[in-house]
Amino acid sequence: MSIYLPIAELPVNLLLILGLGVAVGFISGMFGVGGGFLMTPLLILVGIPPAIAVASVPSHMAASSMSGAMTYWRKRLVDLGLGLVLLSGGLIGTATGVWVFSLLRYVGQLDLVVGLSYVILLGIVGGIMLMESVRAIIRARKGVPPIVRRPGTHAWFHGLPLKLRFRQSRIYVSAIPVTIIGFGIGFFGAIMGIGGGFLLIPALIYLMRVPTTVSVATSLFLTLCTMLLATVLHAMENHSVDIVLALVLMIGGVIGAQFGARAGQAIRAEQLRLLLAILVVGVAVRVAIDLVITPQELFTIVPGGRLQ
């Protein structure tokens, strides 16, 4: 069963795309991340042009993070103050990212930069998560209690000015590193077509020492806002948001997320983190292989009336 994508200008298998939405939604529901880091490469793999994939995936992530954020909002777990400070950096980061995206597309290095960003970011984050979760599992096996939050510890950035108190997160921290984190998430989100939850959640937990549930809830809030902005900006700047592709992904995604969330509750936290780490590293390795192996066709043809 085929459906024609009006912006990508090609027919795709409806069930395949819906299936991708469900599968990625399942994973995102299970791990509490947006799943953009999986969705964008998978869409490119099934033949969607990278520019269309990167621009259309954000709306899919906006839909699933809206659904998730509402649940956390009702439980009052979203730290609005922290979210807004992150957002101030995130919005500037997203706008910069969309601009850099069209610049890279123009000079023909978009695929390379997207690929390298995936390998480096996912490789590092996935690697750290892998080590951390393996250690946590070993500790649990030995019966050692997990390391708890240490409220007294201070990192170098705690000395910075513009300190703000975020009550929900129980932290007192300068707005500067928070804004920088937000900027980075927005920037890479727009370039890589990812929400950045898998980057932001560890940053909040390990760097800012925000409680896990508040981190997840606030990350969803931030993802929602930056992905909505990314959708509008990509539509304005690159005209490459495919609304039909986005809708199919959204529907699949929100359905998959429900089942994923249930599956996630049946697995222990450190095992869940290990699985996520393996997934993240796996994607990084897959993208790295694509960059290194000799492509079947060395030439690509893309629309380009403006090249000088």
Binding site: S59, H60, M70, L228, A235, I243, A246, I251, A257
Partner: peptide, 29 residues
């Protein structure tokens, strides 16, 4: 309609996609 909107009215088209995402999310929730 979609192709013309995406080409000529990028902002409105983007906004429509964003609201579609919000609506789908709220409905699913």
């Amino acid at each position: 309609l979609f192709a013309r909107a995406a080409r000529d009215h990028g902002f409105l088209y983007g906004l429509a996609t964003a609201f579609l995402a919000l609506g789908t999310g709220i409905l699913a929730n």
